[in-house]
Design a protein around this nucleic acid. Structure first.
Lengths: 213, 213
DNA sequence: TAGATTGTTAATCGATTAACAATC
DNA sequence: TAGATTGTTAATCGATTAACAATC
């Protein structure tokens, strides 16, 4: 409750991941009309310790109040700012298969400010198809879309064999960050961020854990 | 190159996650006809250090050979066994929206031995629909399917508000592990494994990282 | 006030990396 | 053989947890 850190210090990625989970939780607490939340409450909801929660929140420019905890609305707002969830992010999705079109039309993604500006594929049979609000475009058009719509995020939903090549195309077109939904690891030049969801990797970790329990 | 650990010791989850990435990579090396791979090669492909790779592989009952490295085919086989990727896993998918149907019909998932035994929803408008090879069933039928088809894995693709309830239903029906594709954290009784892919969480971590670079 | 909860420091725990003898 | 690469130990690094004074 004394002084607090400035938002300028870099936040470790382990902490960033949890901050975005707090953000999601606060959104739901806010909608339930909760006014205050303690580090203990947050911890219990997310399977953490209250110590970890307080340690995490010490990285952002926000203070709680002894005995009451944190003001839900205010903490939510600060976290939105820290995570970049207070503004819209222009995205493109590459790969108009089942997964790509599902992501491109996913409610939870739109609701959090990720605006899909284009859905692309290399297969002529798919180009031109209407998928929800989007029409599938040929991959060759991506550069123009990225430039005109100021796209910063590329979402890769192509087969593993095409993932690296797709990443290269996106980086060349000028996106700043990639969400990789394929099973492959991709390499990018410094300054570009990549996050992988590793769905299949997760499933394998799950089966291992089932076997050893 | 001296003695090696028995497969009986529990493997830390940080290591398990990487083991499943090695598995995926070895599969592709094998298909390219590679016979040997060194810890350095593996590290470079996945953005790790060779030290980490050797440390990880020391957890499994397998030895490399000085100067040559690891035999691709054999290491691949051992990793498949360790991760449970050498057998089929019966799964059900709950939530027949875009994401649920995409996952239920996803090639990469089927190819790795995850057999989708049922696709369920609560919405009468969706029940009965044909989605790829599957017909959407009502959630009330899940218990029977889990029992008859010996389902061990439940995949949650419902909206956040229904995720916990869905998890409870799956656990009651008898599944052993859950893959949570929703944005919410879910609680399960001891003995049940849960893995979350946190797609939205990943996107927020990505935007944070774009902002601070 | 007394009690609950914060913010922060210090201690613990675990994971990654470095280093190197063994060895093929 | 000489050199490359393993397996393993020890050192470093980072992340989590415990503890507690400050305080509303």
């Amino acid at each position: 409750m004394q002084k607090r850190k400035k938002g300028s210090a870099p936040i470790p990625s382990s902490v960033v991941k949890r901050l975005s989970r707090y953000l999601t939780l606060l959104q739901s607490l806010e909608s339930k009309g909760e006014e205050w939340v303690s580090s203990k409450d947050l911890a219990e909801h997310l399977g953490l310790t209250s110590s970890t929660v307080r340690q995490d929140l010490s990285h952002i420019d926000f203070s709680g109040i002894s005995k009451k905890g944190y003001e839900v609305a205010k903490l939510w707002k600060v976290l939105r700012e820290v995570m970049g969830a207070d503004k819209e992010w222009n995205c493109v999705v590459i790969g108009a298969g089942n997964l790509g079109t599902a992501i491109a039309n996913h409610r939870d993604i739109a609701r959090r400010g990720f605006v899909i500006r284009g859905l692309f594929d290399i297969d002529p049979k798919r180009v031109g198809n209407k998928e929800g609000a989007l029409k599938v475009q040929h991959i060759s058009e991506i550069e123009g879309v990225v430039k005109n719509a100021h796209v910063e995020v590329g979402i890769i939903a192509v087969p593993a064999t095409a993932a690296q090549e797709t990443a290269d195309i996106l980086v060349r077109a000028g996106v700043k960050g990639l969400l990789n939904l394929s099973v492959t690891h991709i390499n990018v030049p410094p300054g570009i961020s990549v996050i992988g969801t590793r769905m299949v990797t997760s499933l394998l970790a799950l089966t291992h854990s089932i076997m050893s329990s």
